[in-house]
Design a protein around this nucleic acid. Structure first.
Lengths: 231, 231
DNA sequence: TCCATGTTCATACGTTTGTTTAAAACATAA
DNA sequence: TTATGTTTTAAACAAACGTATGAACATGGA
């Protein structure tokens, strides 16, 4: 380990250590289930450090997400810009759009410097986090990106009602959320000791699997909606 | 309101009042985010009542789920028994199985006596709840039912690798979870003021929408898995 | 050297947490 | 009525919570 050079360097180091510890603990135990003392303990810093550097626990969790989401959503925007530029006006293929949004997300798992699997699992279970202010915060962070991808899907699937696309976007988010929430949640479906456990959580298998599923759902035949009263 | 007749009647009433309040509050604020004082306050009972009737907060939340899941999973078993009996050995259609598992769940929303939408939304966000002991508990409660439906899917889709089906079951759970987690989570995708808000959350629309999506995903073309190293 | 600035530290504050206690109130049956 | 078991009640408990404070320390420029 390299010695921190001096004041400002230690400063930045402390912030990062706190963010890393908070990310891991929020992932494991949730926001309300994680205490300041756990965070500062695991980070090896003083209890008061969080309030000094971030102001409050609420601000801390927001910074935990912002640190990763800023890059992710910028990247998603960049990818969509590039796709639309190459398409030169013609509508994109749904698979391109889905990969731009969800593929870009899942590929973060390979990048340990961007939070890797830890952040992905945290995000996966936080989109439907009980804590009101976190959901509100995430909704704001995602607003513009989701809006652009929604519009792209509208153009790519002109024959599908917009409300239908919105719902299917929502369903895709759910499937992806479970996909990355990881082996914890998978215990619901598998019997702990699955024969090919080793290959179950290979990331290079997860992405194509999820992508097939999402596209299958997105392009499914439209349901017959009974416009009258009861079903 | 009918007067409670006598001792045992008041007893049961207090228990039910606590369970109802806890269900609603856990749905709104999560397990860790809900205090005993909130629960007993909303239920209109004494603070000590929870510990007297249920022993602890952990036992309470387990009873909240058990009260609904017992019926749900029995019903799922019954439906699958019936389907397999009618099929008389021949494999079921995937749509029948999916409807038996997820349709039975969603149709609970119409039954206010079974918890209705409140319990559904609670369940939706609890399958990936951070609290370890809740996930463990749910995994146990679901074990046998999930196992039977998995087997049914294996038989219904003999050409699809079992690992693939397990994953897709998992994805379906995720999509369903988001579907029932309700309008809170939908804010991620919609712009608050959607034109046809009124029709967005009509339950008789949600079920066929979700079903199309799930079946589309379940029957999607198999992904090309790179059996070698990196993707 | 001195001061100013930024950071760390131990400690304490006021609340809130889940749970326990012992007495009171109640219901049931002899 | 008396005796017995069950349920409700107010009050208290220790522990943990997020946050605030002021002294100690380190650093860089004057």
């Amino acid at each position: 380990m390299a010695e921190p050079r001096a004041g400002e360097s230690r400063n930045a180091d402390t912030r990062e250590r706190i963010l890393d510890a908070a990310e891991r603990l929020f992932m494991a135990h949730g926001y309300e289930g994680t205490s300041m003392r756990q965070i500062t303990g695991e980070a090896g810093v003083n209890l008061a450090a969080v309030n000094y550097h971030f102001g409050s626990k609420e601000s801390l969790v927001q910074e935990v997400f912002r640190r990763r989401l800023d890059w992710l959503n910028d990247e998603r925007m960049r990818v969509l810009d590039e796709l639309e530029h190459e398409a030169a006006g013609r509508p994109l293929k749904p698979s391109q759009i889905v990969d731009g949004f969800f593929g870009t997300l899942l590929r973060m798992a390979d990048d340990e410097a961007r939070g890797g699997m830890t952040f992905l699992r945290l995000l996966g279970r936080t989109l439907i986090e009980p804590s009101e202010f976190i959901r509100t915060f995430l909704a704001q962070e995602y607003r513009t990106v989701v809006e652009r991808y929604k519009e792209a899907l509208f153009k790519a699937l002109p024959d599908v009602p917009k409300a239908e696309i919105v719902w299917r976007f929502h369903f895709m988010l759910g499937a992806t959320s479970y996909a990355i929430a990881g082996t914890d949640a998978l215990r619901l479906v598998t019997d702990w000791q699955i024969e090919d456990e080793a290959t179950m959580d290979r990331l290079d298998h997860l992405l194509p699997r999820l992508m097939s599923f999402l596209l299958g759902g997105l392009r499914a035949p439209l349901p017959q909606l009974n416009e009258g009263g009861q079903i």
